[in-house]
């Protein structure tokens, strides 16, 4: 069953058209990688799904509810505030630059949204956070502050922070681009582990080997369009598309 469907989505920044008619579906339990050159619109697509950007037209549904819809008359309308707030919690996002809250301890980074948004009682939220930290291999860092952690550790905390809200889908926006190669490995290992647990994930990445390794499906984007879509095998090894070939030849 599709947990996210994106249909004919368009998005421009003033005169620059960043997404030109994007359609795809993300199935439950699937790991989808989105690859493509810088400026191809892949991050913008992720930001539209997580509601950090608003689309100009098109339809996005998440977990069976409509976030935004363009009707037959061409009128694009977002769901009401309440519905949007409810729907968007189904999608977690891990940022390239982590964006942890520097003034909160690691524990509070992970519990704040649970308590403020989901109204989870404090001790329950802390139990959930402790479990997640253990899973991320950081059980001893609960009281640390983000500046005391390495980039890789910060990114693992931010993954824990996103998972604490129990999203149906976890999105990653170039999760290793701010990390050196050594630390990249630890993040990829975490994502891989989540994949074995059948977490539904959408990963925007420049790590081709990784995309090939963990994805069920790969989307190649260029210039605001989905150029090719298929199994890692089909895209990485057997592509017939000239543009895809040219892009992949650099790796």
């Amino acid at each position: 069953m599709a947990v996210i469907t994106v249909d004919h989505v368009r998005k421009s920044f003033s005169s620059l058209e960043v997404l030109k008619d994007i359609s795809f579906a993300l199935e439950t339990g699937e790991v989808l990688s989105i690859i493509g050159p810088s400026g191809s619109g892949k991050s913008t697509l992720l930001r539209c799904i997580t509601n950090l950007e608003q689309v100009d037209s098109g339809t996005i549904s998440i977990g069976g509810d409509t976030l935004v819809h363009t009707d037959d008359q061409g009128i694009t309308q977002y769901a009401d505030k309440h519905t949007v707030a409810r729907i968007r919690l189904r999608v977690g996002l891990v940022f390239q630059n982590f964006n942890l809250f520097p003034h909160f301890s690691v524990m509070r980074n992970i519990t704040e949204a649970q308590m403020h948004v989901l109204k989870t009682p404090k001790d329950e939220a802390q139990d959930i956070a402790s479990d997640l930290l253990r899973k991320m291999g950081l059980p001893e860092k609960a009281d640390a502050y983000p500046f005391q952690l390495s980039g890789g550790q910060q990114q693992r905390v931010s993954i824990a922070r996103a998972l604490a809200l129990k999203p149906q889908v976890l999105c990653f926006d170039e999760p290793t681009s701010a990390l050196d190669p050594e630390l990249t490995g630890e993040i990829l290992a975490v994502i891989k582990e989540l994949a074995t647990e059948h977490m539904t994930m959408m990963v925007v990445t420049h790590e081709m080997a990784f995309a090939r390794d963990i994805s069920n499906r790969v989307i190649f984007m260029d210039d605001g369009l989905i150029v090719e879509e298929g199994t890692p095998e089909a895209v990485f090894s057997n592509t017939k598309n000239e543009r895809t070939k040219r892009f992949l030849s650099r790796f």
Partner: peptide
């Protein structure tokens, strides 16, 4: 953006 994605008011 982080606050927004986490659903903070």
């Amino acid at each position: 953006e982080a606050a927004s994605v986490l659903g903070f008011t």
